[in-house]
């Protein structure tokens, strides 16, 4: 039996069905959207309740602040996105980080004379805490990193370099390449590094090691020592902890 081609009626039926499906689909989507909206409303309400309830904890306890930040990040909320609006009013979280940002800038500027604009995160934390006075809340490394991230909005003046298990904060403009960060990593343990260290440990060409070290001397980040035996060594004040709380 041969198939007859579909008639006009069949085609009409088919497009009718399609239109109905579409309607139904829209209806379901609307429903879901409404549902979602309701859920978000509920969620926002809960988060607000939570934030209000734990407001003091968030402000005072760095550990708790970190967890709260992580929770917000995992659901795509940035409490620091704006200083105006719900979060800032509710928590003063925004202000907290802006204030911290300013203090970080102050400490970095004051110590740049000593360290050439490169400071270890732990030293920075100690100095910022000292400058905030005795009665203010504790500051964690995480707080500092978040505040510095916010400072980037203002331009490329600030950058953070991961060196070993710690961080160095650079507050002078000037591009540190990967090579320079690696040099700092090598120097971290003893506070200094020589050209042969770089050649032997990293299998660098001598020229590459020389260029990296010369650059860091030129930028005022490294000091040269001519009395270190056979070979000159290069020292980084930013890697030598300064245990005083003074800014100079």
């Amino acid at each position: 039996m041969s198939r007859r081609p579909a008639g006009i009626a069949a085609i009409k039926n088919k497009s009718l069905a399609q239109a109905k499906y579409k309607d139904k689909g829209n209806e379901i989507a609307d429903n879901q959207f409404a549902q979602m909206g309701k859920q978000m409303e509920l969620f926002k309400g809960n988060l607000e309740d939570f934030a209000t309830k734990h407001r003091d904890d968030i402000r005072k306890d760095p550990e708790f602040r970190l967890q709260f930040q992580e929770m917000c990040a995992s659901i795509g909320v940035d409490p620091l996105a704006s200083s105006k609006g719900f979060w800032a009013e509710m928590l003063g979280v925004g202000d907290f980080y802006y204030e911290l940002g300013i203090q970080i800038v102050e400490v970095c500027m004051a110590t740049s004379k000593r360290n050439g604009g490169l400071i270890g995160i732990e030293e920075l934390r100690r100095k910022v805490e000292a400058s905030r006075g005795r009665n203010s809340q504790a500051i964690s490394i995480d707080d500092l990193l978040r505040a510095i991230k916010k400072l980037k909005i203002l331009g490329n003046g600030f950058s953070v370099h991961k060196v070993g298990g710690s961080f160095l904060v650079q507050s002078v403009p000037g591009e540190l390449t990967l090579d320079h960060t690696v040099v700092l990593q090598q120097a971290q343990e003893k506070g200094n590094v020589t050209k042969s260290d770089l050649v032997n440990l990293l299998s660098w060409e001598e020229e590459r090691a020389k260029r990296a070290l010369d650059f860091m001397v030129k930028e005022g980040l490294a000091w040269v020592d001519h009395q270190s035996g056979n070979e000159h060594s290069f020292w980084f004040p930013s890697l030598i902890p300064d245990f005083s709380n003074s800014l100079n």
């Binding site: 004379k113 050439g116 001397v217 040269v224 020592d225 009395q227 060594s233 290069f234 030598i240």
Partner: peptide
């Protein structure tokens, strides 16, 4: 001062800015 315990403090620094501080 901290510099006294910083070995390169005893080498006159080639970088002009650093030398000024030194």
């Amino acid at each position: 001062p901290w510099q006294y315990k910083f070995p390169p403090f005893f080498t006159i620094q080639p970088n002009i800015e650093t030398r000024k501080k030194q």
